[in-house]
């Protein structure tokens, strides 16, 4: 059958329109799927190229500095971080009670930037290769328009107890109001899952 050129053009236009519509739909779905997943902020990481973190055997996690309005946020995040770090099976994490005892005895203030001699002293007191400090910058519900969701912003630093120098530093954020929260409501993930997400990201990057 011989078709007229105008009919073929119409058909071609129709096909193009359908392809464009499908592309737009795909892009919208991809955007929505992206919005449904947990948001993640800018990943900033420093790693000392001369240090092999896989050789670290024992870690002491100091109490995290809490810059949020939730009084217990620092302790909660530190506890989950310590547990998840030990759960990797790669390192032994000194129990928090031992760390607190050493910190009190050495009279080290709560800081994310301890002096090198403090790091060395804590390391020798608890027999740790690395001392970890952390700062919780955001913890709890955030609001965007009429939607609310849980969010966390946390950063950690690893100090070598031998030298007192920073050997790894990184920050992570998780949670927040997503597109699906705006469209469908829901209030986001529970706080502990948001915390787990951010900390898993940090631990994955430590061992990357």
């Amino acid at each position: 059958m011989i078709r007229r050129r105008s009919e073929g053009r119409k058909e071609h236009r129709g096909r193009s329109a359908r392809a464009v519509a499908l592309l737009l739909l795909g892009a919208a779905l991809a955007g929505l799927a992206g919005g449904c997943s947990t948001t993640r902020g800018l990943e900033s990481t420093y790693a000392d190229p001369e240090v092999d973190l896989s050789l670290v055997q024992t870690v002491a996690v100091l109490p995290f500095v809490n810059l949020t309005s939730d009084d217990r946020a620092g302790e909660r995040v530190r506890d989950v971080f310590s547990t998840m770090l030990q759960a990797t099976g790669a390192v032994y994490v000194v129990p928090p009670g031992e760390v607190t005892k050493a910190v009190n005895r050495l009279r080290v203030g709560k800081s994310d930037e301890p002096a090198p001699e403090d790091v060395t002293a804590i390391g020798s007191a608890v027999k740790a290769d690395v001392v970890v400090t952390g700062v919780v910058r955001e913890y709890g519900q955030v609001r965007s328009g009429n939607s609310t969701a849980n969010a966390i912003a946390v950063s950690v630093k690893l100090f070598a107890t031998e030298s007192g120098k920073v050997i790894w530093s990184g920050a992570s954020t998780a949670g927040g109001v997503t597109a699906s929260d705006r469209f469908f409501g829901g209030g986001g993930e529970p706080m502990e899952l948001v915390t787990e997400d951010a900390l898993r990201d940090l631990i994955d990057r430590i061992y990357k």
Partner: peptide
């Protein structure tokens, strides 16, 4: 309902952490 906690088991004989867990 929502429940979340961590556990720590200390081996008193060996003076070391025997296990840790995080549940939610």
């Amino acid at each position: 309902p929502m429940v979340g906690f961590t556990t720590t088991v200390i081996d008193a004989r060996r003076r070391q952490v025997a296990s840790v867990s995080f549940s939610h």
